[in-house]
Design a protein around this nucleic acid. Structure first.
Length: 827
RNA sequence: GCGGGCGUGGCGGAACGGCAGACGCGCUGGACUUAGGAUCCAGUGGGGUAACUCCCGUGGAGGUUCAAGUCCUCUCGCCCGCACCA
């Protein structure tokens, strides 16, 4: 064994050998219990960043640990390979095709991952841009279409002018494009949607099954789904046959309605204003509101502006005529696109009513206070008793909600309704580099699905990428013009491609049978491996990818294509990698490149640092000096083993018995460390404390090495060093493998069973306990470890120092805590 | 506004309600060296003292408890998510 730790040689040697021997390849089935360990696959942007390194290092520890524990572990990797950057690169640099750009990036990043020594079964690699993959993305689209879960509709949709495409609601953040932050505009377009709203209730309810998910992520999804209970109430338009149906969570306040507001885009508005004097003014207002970006329209600072339509509607319970307005703050997408104005019991309505002089009518009285409409300074939104509400007077308002809705039901003018904030998922994209939506339009037959036998609908390669605002595919006649599968007449292909989140909603199923050609996967294999036991990735996908994947899983379950109801049993959301307290980014110029770190210190050091510097779910502050420290530690391990390697080769593996002194202590530390590391990894993923325990063990081994050779037990030394390597192997796979071999072992360390600890060995004969007086530490005593509480009490009171400190005090109470301390309470 | 998270040495971070600060970084001193920014050893929260397990310390204020970084109440600060949601 070389005296020096030359990480380049070590890492290169083992990466080559592992690949040659295929030690990370995993069979489809096994008698051992399965464990599916998955990290979110990356977009192939070109190079790994530290966030990737962190994500994949965490996953690799889990995968290696579980493997050593005897599980049959699936640990695959692939590429979320469709998407805008490839197309933008093609536009920007010219000449290079998105496919070429993407494949180059994949090759580069794959090489980087191999350099990191991550234990993937590369035979299962998938790339969503490969026809063999998107064939099945398209096939799945068709299954949704056949189920009525995919549909096309014209709607005002989010449009990002920079990306020149539409976006799903989930991809709009603070009114801007999630990718480029450009303010999102509204455009009226015919687009494909997935009916995720049909699964809102299940997506919400089944979160009960997700015990292994962070509470935070579940709450975010819950908020996003946004379930509310209330009622729909029909207000007939005065003098017309039309009805305005309003959704409210406060049907108990229906007697307090003094006006009604529609969204400017509400379909009824045209009809209401037709021929009225306000018509021109209202049209102008509607145009103005429509042109606003979401930011301007929904900002809290935006003034609430209402305009009268001149129309009235009839309150179904009072028969009163209520003026109908339109206002900028009412959103067509939520509820029924209109709001009933109850100024007395809704703060926003209150402010609006004060501005436009609508009456405030109190219909809920809180106990003890009398609300006076003329003097009220804010709406009363709390509970109370109903007043001014006809036969409902005197009813607690909570009961009133139900009573009124039931009454409306009886009259045929209302009904209970559960409403969700969640909207259907817009999956059309006006871009080239995505999976084509497999639909053909025919003048005679309408929208016709491409027959499954004709899949995949291949992306044409010879296309110009001008950012025109419509799909480049539309300018590719060879692609567009085709034959209608239904009638054989001329047909035109859909030219939009699918949201890449669709591709990433099912990739974890494909890994189980990545080259399957008869279907998206082999059901027996999917049923064997799924659900994913541990999923690891950034919290930025809390809603997007994770919600879509859950939706897909439920649809696939209903289609009987899989047997699991949820995709990911346990979820770990790792924190960001920071430098100088902020996220690493090119614009800030604080990026540390994994390439540089690996070149300078090696993959084992990079991995170790990132696992040691912080617990995985927390943000991690990058520290070059910290990296240096981890490098130092690995060298320390090397130097510990190098001089012993040849000696250890001759030491048979035999349990050491009847140990005393330093030998016994070294063995105790070894077994204690096995216990600690095992628990830190399996119970809580606290890799940082696991690593620190290993460091402590190395420190102890250095001490142990110093004692005279004749006093040292070779068996203890061997057991300790072997254990050390085994414990460190998931974190630093190369150096441990090298030392493992050099110390005379046959076979890869990564194929060894995880060490077990001997509870006997951990037992200490004597321990130090603390003596507290009134909760303050006053003395430490070395006592037999098995001292009973009674004996502890006696022992402590004999202590001279204790006697002195309590001599003129009265003992109130003595609390012995076995193995820990004794607290004497005195006065 | 609503929801969630976090506040511990110079820094990253440890602490089933039971010795606060493990481990690492940094710093100080020493050893070995021609030299070291290599390596090894020791020390390192603040204050006090001739010395002593003397005092003070987990954002702040209260409380529960024999015992609180940890539990409860209030409060301040930072971060994240959602936000005119009817």
């Amino acid at each position: 064994m070389n005296d020096n730790y030359v990480f380049k040689d070590v890492e290169g040697k083992w990466q080559a050998r592992w690949e040659k021997e295929g030690i990370y390849e995993v069979s489809d089935f096994s008698d051992r219990p399965k464990y599916y360990c998955l990290e979110m696959f990356p977009y192939p942007s070109g190079k790994l960043h530290m966030g990737h390194v962190r994500n994949y290092s965490i996953g690799d520890v889990v995968a290696r640990f579980k493997t050593m524990q005897g599980f049959h572990v699936l640990h695959p990797m692939g590429w979320d390979a469709f998407g805008l950057p490839a197309e933008n690169a093609a536009i920007k640099h010219g000449g290079i095709h998105p496919a070429e750009w993407t494949i180059d990036n994949i090759d580069n990043m794959r090489a980087q991952l191999k350099q990191m020594g991550i234990s993937y079964d590369w035979n299962r690699e998938v790339a969503t841009c490969h026809p063999g993959y998107y064939h099945w993305t398209q096939w799945l689209f068709l299954q949704l279409l056949h189920r009525g879960l995919a549909y096309k509709k014209k709607a005002a949709v989010n449009w990002c002018p920079e990306c020149a495409t539409v976006l799903a609601n989930e991809q709009v953040k603070d009114g801007g494009c999630e990718r480029c932050k450009t303010p999102v505009e509204k455009r009226e377009l015919a687009q494909w949607f997935f009916k995720i709203t049909a699964y809102a209730e299940r997506l919400l309810k089944d979160m009960e099954l997700l015990e292994g998910w962070p509470e935070k992520v579940k709450i975010m999804q819950e908020n996003w789904i946004g379930r509310s209970e209330g009622a729909e109430i029909d207000f007939k338009v005065d003098g017309m046959d039309d009805t305005i149906t309003v959704y409210t969570t406060r049907p108990d306040t229906v007697f307090g309605v003094t006006y009604m507001v529609l969204a400017p885009e509400h379909p009824l508005v045209e009809k209401l204003i037709a021929g009225k004097s306000e018509e021109a003014e209202i049209r102008k207002f509607i145009r103005k509101v429509r042109n606003l970006t979401d930011i301007d329209r929904t900002s809290a600072e935006t003034e609430k502006i209402g305009l009268s339509t001149g129309a009235f509607c009839i309150n179904p319970l009072t028969g009163e005529k209520v003026p109908v307005l339109i206002a900028n703050y009412v959103l067509l997408e939520y509820g029924t696109g209109c709001v009933m104005g109850v100024p007395a019991h809704d703060q926003r309505d209150f402010e609006f009513a004060r501005k436009y002089n609508f009456p405030v009518r109190v219909v809920i009285q809180p106990a003890g206070v009398k609300l006076e409409p003329s003097t009220m300074e804010a709406a009363y939104e709390g509970e109370g008793v109903m007043v001014n509400s006809g036969k409902f007077d005197g009813l607690p308002n909570k009961e009133g909600m139900k009573a009124i809705t039931r009454e409306l039901e009886k009259l045929g003018k209302g009904r209970f309704r559960v409403n969700y904030r969640l909207r259907d998922w817009l999956i059309s994209r006006q871009r080239y580099w995505g999976a084509p939506i497999p639909v053909i339009y025919c003048d005679k037959c309408g929208a016709v699905p491409v027959p499954e036998s004709e899949l995949p609908v291949l992306l044409p390669m010879d296309v110009e990428f001008k950012p025109t605002g419509r799909s480049p595919l539309a300018d590719c006649p060879d692609f567009v013009n085709t034959v209608c599968p239904a009638c054989g007449g001329p047909g035109k292909r859909e030219t939009d491609t699918m949201d890449t989140f669709m591709c990433s909603s099912w990739y974890y199923y494909r890994y189980t049978s990545p080259r399957e050609t008869g279907g998206p996967w082999d059901k027996a294999k999917v049923d064997y491996w799924l659900p994913v036991d541990q999923y690891i990735g950034g919290v930025e996908h809390a809603i997007l990818h994770l919600l879509y994947s859950r939706f897909f899983t439920k649809v696939l379950y209903d289609l009987n294509l899989i047997s699991n109801q949820e995709p990911f049993t346990n979820l770990l959301t790792q924190g960001m990698v920071l430098k100088d307290g902020v996220k690493m980014s090119k614009s800030r110029g604080n990026v540390v490149s994994p390439e540089d770190i690996v070149a300078r210190y090696g993959a084992d050091t990079a991995r170790l640092f990132i696992l040691f510097a912080a617990p995985p779910e927390r943000d991690l502050e990058w520290s070059n000096q910290g990296v240096e420290g981890c490098f130092r530690f690995l060298r320390r391990v090397w130097r510990l083993a190098a001089p012993l390697a040849d000696f250890l080769k001759g030491v048979p593996l035999a349990p050491a018995a009847n140990l005393v002194g330093a030998n016994r202590e070294m063995r105790r530390i070894t077994h204690y460390t096995i216990k600690k590391v095992t628990e830190d990894i399996s119970n809580r993923f606290n890799f940082n404390t696991a690593v620190s325990a290993i460091m402590e063990m190395v420190n102890a081994l250095y001490q142990y090495k110093e004692i005279p050779e004749t006093d040292r037990s070779p068996a203890v030394l061997r057991e300790s060093l072997d254990s050390l390597l085994l414990l460190l192997a998931p974190f630093a796979p190369h150096i441990t493998e090298e030392i493992w071999e050099a110390t005379g072992h046959e076979g890869s360390i990564h194929k060894q069973p995880w060490p077990a600890y001997d509870p006997e060995a951990i037992q200490e004969d004597e321990i130090t306990i603390v003596v507290q007086i009134n909760g303050k530490v006053r003395e430490r005593l070395l006592v037999p470890a098995d001292l009973t509480p009674e004996k502890m009490r006696e022992r402590v009171l004999q202590e001279p120092r204790v006697i002195r400190l309590i001599q003129d005090k009265k003992i109130i109470k003595i609390i012995p805590v076995p193995g820990k301390l004794v607290n004497i309470v005195v006065k």
